[in-house]
Design a binder for these strands. Structure first.
Lengths: 341, 341
DNA sequence: ACGAAAAAGGAAACCGGTGTCAAAACGATT
DNA sequence: AATCGTTTTGACACCGGTTTCCTTTTTCGT
């Protein structure tokens, strides 16, 4: 019997069940070459004494930890946190745990930092959040290091087993359709920074929808931001100066849309009476700002769960492509355009 | 020599340095009974070949993982994320990693869940964020399990070595002083939920400052919220109905303060012209809301770093009490009270 | 210079699992 | 019943450190 006070080990199970520890190990690892009778006998003992394999020992023997890593360059606090919750949904009641690692994508050492991190911790796999999920070198690094990985993205960045995708582009298109239906014709775009795949996808969606409706998008009706609040303010100011007749504004994310509110208010423009504003991400700020913002939300938590499952249990469903639908969250920042004066 | 491709092991170091692995182990563990010459010789080799002890092996032998756990019941996404960054600041370039574990403080199984989590993962230590940091049973559990812990709190919850503290109370007092200096006399309070130590501290600070100034605080000038946005809306409505002559409002956190903005706007009350609003936490919403909110910010990241250091390197400074000063972040939601009549 | 105590080093066992490979058990044939 | 080819199972080394226990060397007082 194991000394009371310390958890039962594989040896305890083996002794009580009257088999070798290797056999117990086989039961734990679901080896197919076990006689059913043996398996059941061992499983009974495991259940009885409440044995749980020690992840530290397995980590050493397998040269691989039971840790999932979350690598991110803080796109947005709420997003990251929702993602963490989703991963936890997937690994709750398993031996896995989630380790987080904020990184700085602007640092020239990012890849080296991550390499030594992976080398040291021997993670089972990592989850890559945008924008660093778009970094192909990083994915390559994971492959080299024998570390599983799943990328979250708004485009087909990788093979299905390494990807959980959202359909930003389609979603933006339908959002523009919605604005056009309401009567808007002059719609402005605040796009995200160059180099972000999501920004590109959202812009493409915008442009193709406008084109489909036969609407003109002069250069002066688009402005670029950095996905941060301040850049939204600046972009809006620039836009409204160049194109004062714009009646609706689509911002590539909520923070910039909130910046647009700010700029509009400073100019005495009423939202949504004189200007409709639409964001993207459904972050908390969209709900808290006044008037509450209409935006597009994607099911981050479910996506995170799916991503984690691809790593942890690739058998179940891991190879199938996962594209998650976003949905329009209608609040009060969009109205029909004002009557022409 | 170690086979190229795999990291150097303790045996490599021992062979190259011409000592036994035990000696190397002693160097790594800073054993005091080593001759300086030996230590330096070994350290030189370690540096040369870039040896890093394998955390998995150490975890097995020491029965203790090199993982810090962050237990939280999401007080606020930005807070949690800042905290994570702070912990990372402390453990960057060490063998430690940070694992996160959101918990549900309303679940009756919370303690059991955490117990089995600790048992399984054998964390080196955990960091407890408010509000669960206030749970004494949880701290007791950590002690029982031999797991280090540090609590973040707004009061003296525990011994110095287990505590990183903020001075909410003092800070609220000085905030009220500030309002009174501006001329406010009728100040309302939206307090946080019962059972939160921070809520209690902030209320105490408010009341004692008001008392000090000889100002009356009728029951109708305080309302309770849940720390969530919506509760801020409701509390403000209740408050303004009962005490329409209030000229300033202090909310126990920014989310509720944002709710107060919302309620004020719905009632056509101008902020800060007719009503000054003050929040607490300096969360992003405070900066993004219109007009930008004056609030109190505490240095979460530094506090997190200090907390992590208490666990990782208790020698350095771990036993000394750590109380971090908050500071007033002045923005545009506070103005002198409107002239009477 | 001598003996005792302190410091340094090493061999082997151990932490709790997994991999390899050979032995044992089994079933089907002859 | 003996033989052969498969399953099943177990003995033993190993993952990369730490620990125990003991021997050898230093250091120091006298």
């Amino acid at each position: 019997m194991s000394k009371s006070g310390s958890a039962p080990t594989i040896n305890d199970v083996a002794r009580i069940a009257g088999v070798s520890k290797k056999t117990v190990s086989r039961v734990i690892n679901r080896s197919p070459l076990l006689k059913d009778a043996t398996r059941q006998k061992v499983e009974k003992v495991i259940a009885e004494i409440g044995y749980i394999p020690n992840p530290q020992a397995r980590a050493l023997a397998l040269r691989r930890n039971f840790l999932l890593g979350l690598l991110h360059d803080n796109p947005n606090a709420q997003t990251v946190l929702n993602f963490q919750e989703g991963v936890l949904d997937a690994i709750r009641d398993t031996e896995f745990a989630l380790v987080v690692r904020p990184v700085d994508r602007h640092s020239p050492d990012m890849l080296e930092d991550i390499r030594s991190f992976l080398e040291l911790q021997r993670l089972y796999g990592v989850l890559l959040l945008p924008p660093i999920s778009e970094n192909d070198e990083l994915a390559q690094l994971c492959r080299e290091m024998g570390c599983g990985y799943v990328r979250m993205g708004s485009a087909a960045l990788d093979e299905a087993e390494h990807l959980v995708q959202s359909n930003d582009r389609e979603m933006v298109e339908s959002v523009i359709d919605y604005l056009v239906e309401l009567g808007h014709r002059r719609i402005g775009l605040i796009e995200g920074p160059t180099g972000f795949r999501s920004a590109a996808e959202r812009r493409e969606g915008f442009l193709s929808a406008m084109k489909r409706h036969g609407l003109d998008v002069p250069d002066s009706a688009t402005a670029q931001g950095t996905y941060r609040f301040n850049s939204g303010v600046e972009a809006t100011n620039k836009l409204l100066k160049a194109e004062p007749r714009i009646t609706a504004l689509f911002a590539s994310n909520d923070e910039m849309a909130a910046g647009a509110y700010h700029a509009a208010r400073e100019r005495g423009i009423e939202v949504p009476g004189q200007l409709s504003i639409l964001g993207f991400d459904n972050s908390p700020i969209a709900a808290h700002i006044w008037p509450p913002m209409t935006t597009v939300g994607w099911p981050i938590r479910e996506m995170a769960k799916a991503a984690a499952l691809k790593l942890v249990d690739p058998g179940s469903d891991g190879a199938s492509p996962s594209c998650f639908p976003a949905r329009l969250v209608t609040r009060d920042s969009v109205a029909p355009p004002p009557k022409e004066g």
